[in-house]
Simulated assay, not measured.
Amino acid sequence: MSAPIQKSAAKTKAATQIVTANRLDDGLVVYLAPGGGWTEKLNEADVLATPETLAAAVEAGKAAEAARVVVESYPIDVERGPSGLRPLRLREEIRAAGPTVRPDLARPLGA
């Protein structure tokens, strides 16, 4: 008889979330900051610990879309590590680090 399949820690624990989007005027990846502004720095994002704060942040993102500040705002899962916040999905790691085709435009993850 085989052993039961273990789920990864990332799948079983509740994920921390932040809201991300692209700034409309220059297309850069931005994160919703505390107070409702937007920051290019992942570690300055407003970490959303409860369903209520997540819902409010998603609404703030939609309001910023309506005001034509950002486009395509949505929540992403992150974890806090030794160097700060880190997205859990590869797509979001790539967005946070900058373009993969232009190393000169890359930025340190979390900066």
Rank of each mutant, 00 (worst) to 15 (best):
I5Y: 05
V58C: 10
T20M: 05
E52I: 08
G98Y: 03
P108Q: 14
P82V: 14
A66Y: 08
A49V: 15
D26W: 07
V58G: 08
I94E: 07
T53N: 13
V30C: 07
G110W: 01
V78I: 10
G84T: 00
K11L: 13
Y31S: 07
P99F: 14
R107G: 01
S83Q: 14
A96K: 04
E52V: 00
A60K: 06
A60T: 03
I76V: 08
A45C: 03
P75I: 09
L24G: 01
V29D: 08
Y74N: 13
S73K: 04
R68C: 11
A64H: 07
R95L: 12
R102D: 12
R91G: 15
A33K: 05
L109Y: 06
R80Y: 11
L90R: 15
D104K: 11
R80S: 13
V19K: 06
E65W: 04
V19H: 04
E59G: 13
R95T: 10
S73T: 04
E52C: 02
V70N: 00
P103H: 01
E72L: 13
M1W: 05
A55V: 11
A14S: 14
L109V: 05
V19R: 09
G27P: 09
T53F: 00
A60Q: 06
V58Q: 00
R107K: 09
T53M: 14
R107E: 01
V29W: 04
R68H: 14
T100F: 07
L88E: 07
E65I: 00
A14W: 12
V47C: 12
P75E: 09
A14D: 13
R107F: 06
L90T: 11
R68L: 10
P82Y: 14
R80D: 13
V78N: 05
E79G: 09
P87E: 07
P75G: 09
V58F: 03
L105M: 13
G37A: 06
L24M: 09
V58E: 04
I94L: 11
D25I: 05
T50I: 06
T20R: 05
E52M: 02
R91Q: 11
T12Q: 14
A106W: 09
K7E: 06
P103F: 01
G81I: 11
A60H: 06
E79W: 07
